[in-house]
């Protein structure tokens, strides 16, 4: 222990509390700018707060009742669940397939790794605009190729088809999912490559000696070895995609007929286009409650590691 001398005493105390002082700015800013407004939004959801209303009467659960009895909200919830789960499933499959390919020591590995990461850093606005043109009826090179091949009679409009399957699913929603796969697979790929690098090669050699094929050793060796990486990135990505705003808002504005509207877009439009703040707050809380299910799994596994 340090001796307490006159004059050096303050320094000693300061030194002891340095670790605490180091985390105060970050923790305080997150508490003030993320946690506090979130709690306020939850509070706001119990009030009828609108731009033109002078008063903001307490209405209890009326906003929630209004939201949950609205067919649009249910359509939006199903859209969002499909969008998040389907783009995650496809994204994970694609990212894993590429990661396994790019872990092999063949030439061009670094080049392809860098190339496949570019969608990650492309502004969502730019990506959305270009995909909107790529999937349009009149200016799409995809249509040009399909027409030339004779596979279609006239140009297809991928984003305006309003035919509905299973009560909510539509071609535009599937297209948005594909665009989203394009933009999320790079992050998953990086995580998987990082995980794959830690798998000891001897395991594969032993498995090959025992006569295990490629597919068997993938499921029996690769997947168990990198399970921690897979579960963290899948859970995080699931929650992020459930909260996704950009693709739906920028490619289709939620249309046609609300078939591609996601929850985040509904909240945004209710709050900042219709100025129906209380109602928007209640929809956003419903959204957070649904996202809580995977979030609890994530927290459980993370907190187990801390303690």
């Amino acid at each position: 222990m340090r001796e307490k001398k006159k004059g050096t005493f303050d320094m000693g105390v300061l030194d002891k509390h340095t670790p605490f002082l180091m985390l105060v700015p970050a923790a305080a800013s997150v508490l003030l700018v993320s946690v506090y407004p979130t709690l306020k939004t939850i509070g706001m959801s119990f009030f009828d707060k609108q731009l033109l209303n002078q008063e903001e009467p307490f209405v209890g659960l009326a906003n929630y009742a209004e939201a949950l009895s609205n067919a649009v909200i249910w359509q939006t919830i199903f859209n969002t669940l499909f969008f998040a789960l389907a783009s995650l499933a496809l994204g994970v499959a694609l990212a894993m397939y590429i990661a396994v390919k790019l872990i092999k020591p063949l030439p061009g590995r670094g080049f392809f790794r860098a190339l496949f990461l570019v969608p990650w850093v492309t502004p969502p606005l730019v990506a959305s605009f270009v995909w909107r043109i790529l999937l349009s009826q009149n200016f799409s090179p995809i249509n040009s190729v399909l027409l030339k091949l004779g596979w279609i009679q006239g140009p297809v409009s991928f984003l305006d088809n309003t035919e509905v399957f299973f009560g909510f699913l539509s071609v535009p929603l599937i297209m948005l999912t594909i665009i989203n796969v394009w933009s999320i697979f790079p992050f998953l790929m990086v995580m998987f490559i990082a995980g794959l690098q830690t798998v000891p090669k001897e395991l594969y050699e032993a498995a090959t000696m025992d006569g295990a094929g490629k597919i068997t050793s993938f499921w029996k060796i690769t997947v168990p070895c990198i399970r921690p990486v897979i579960s963290v990135s899948v859970l995080l990505e699931l929650i992020w995609q459930f909260n996704n705003f950009n693709i739906s808002y920028m490619v289709t504005q939620g249309g046609p007929l609300g078939l591609t509207k996601l929850l985040a877009v509904e909240v945004y439009q209710q709050a900042f286009t219709n100025f129906n703040y209380g109602y928007a707050a209640s929809v956003s809380v419903i959204m957070m409650m649904i996202a809580l299910v995977p979030a609890i799994f994530y927290m459980k596994s993370s907190i187990r590691e801390i303690t």
Binding site: L23, A26, A27, V30, L31, V33, S34, V35, P37, T38, K40, T41, M44, L236, I239, F242, N243, F245, A264, V267, Y268, A271, Y277, A280, A281, S284, V285, M287, M288, A291, A295, Y298, M299, S302, I303, I306
Partner: peptide
């Protein structure tokens, strides 16, 4: 702080935005 950072990552940005 660690739990705080893990949790806030999971809050949808739009929820914060409505009152922020």
């Amino acid at each position: 702080s660690l739990v705080l950072m893990l949790c806030t990552q999971l809050i949808p940005g739009i929820v914060t935005m409505v009152s922020l």
